[in-house]
């Protein structure tokens, strides 16, 4: 475990906690895309099947359980909680799941390391994670008025992805650990999706004004 990987995991964890905190305490999911949250739940459910087959470390298992538990509880809150669900803006959150899920399924069937169920689901989850933020980014662009917590959530997720790339570079040089090129490409695509958001996030921070994305 290197510092980039740890920092990446911690920003990922922080992003989820910020979102849960917002939903749980303010009882509002305004500005949060249910589509993105459902895609993340699917990402974790398909990727972390290995908790039943492989043991890596206590840290690894605990983190996997946290990401599974938190993503499904966020979905539950937005869909089922009697107060939270009222703040869900269904009209704005119109991105279709299958636009992302079907191409990722197809791509996983075409480009993978091994043709086994577990490996295909893992590859699918890597592709899907790369694009799962899109409904959230579209929603931010549409609502324009972004509250602090939602802005921080997206910023922390972007930071997590950037730190993972530094982690792969570091692991390559120190451990000769090769991340498969599938992971590299998906990771780079995912990080690049945040570039635009990062630009406006830092601008608003520098000028000390409220974060707004251009229409």
């Amino acid at each position: 475990m290197n510092i980039f990987r740890l920092a990446g995991d911690m920003t990922h964890l922080a992003s989820v906690l910020v979102l849960l905190l917002k939903i749980h305490t303010i009882k509002s999911c305004a500005g949060v895309s249910l589509k993105t949250q459902e895609l993340y739940a699917l990402v974790f459910a398909t990727r972390y099947l290995d908790i039943f087959t492989d043991f890596i470390s206590v840290y690894n298992t605990v983190m996997k359980l946290i990401f599974l538990g938190s993503s499904f509880s966020i979905v539950w809150y937005i869909r089922r909680h009697k107060i939270v669900r009222r703040s869900y803006d269904k009209e704005q959150d119109t991105f279709r799941h299958y636009f992302l899920v079907l191409p990722c399924l197809l791509l996983a069937l075409l480009i993978h390391e091994k043709f086994t169920v577990k490996e295909l689901l893992w590859t699918f989850s890597i592709y899907l994670e790369a694009v799962a933020i899109l409904p959230q980014l579209v929603l931010l662009q549409r609502t324009r008025n972004i509250d602090n917590l939602t802005g921080q959530y997206v910023f922390l997720l972007g930071a997590y992805r950037s730190l993972y790339i530094l982690n792969w570079i570091y692991r390559y040089f120190t451990e000769r650990h090769f991340v498969h090129w599938i992971t590299w490409i998906a990771g780079l695509v995912q990080t690049l999706l945040y570039a635009d958001f990062f630009y406006y996030y830092f601008e608003s921070w520098k000028n000390n004004v409220k974060l707004q994305l251009p229409a």
């Binding site: 492989d54 890596i56 470390s57 690894n60 993972y164 982690n167 650990h177 090769f178 991340v179």
Partner: peptide, 10 residues
């Protein structure tokens, strides 16, 4: 490469 087979990242 067994290092690669074991997916130790999250």
């Amino acid at each position: 490469n067994s290092n690669q087979d074991l997916k130790d990242e999250l």
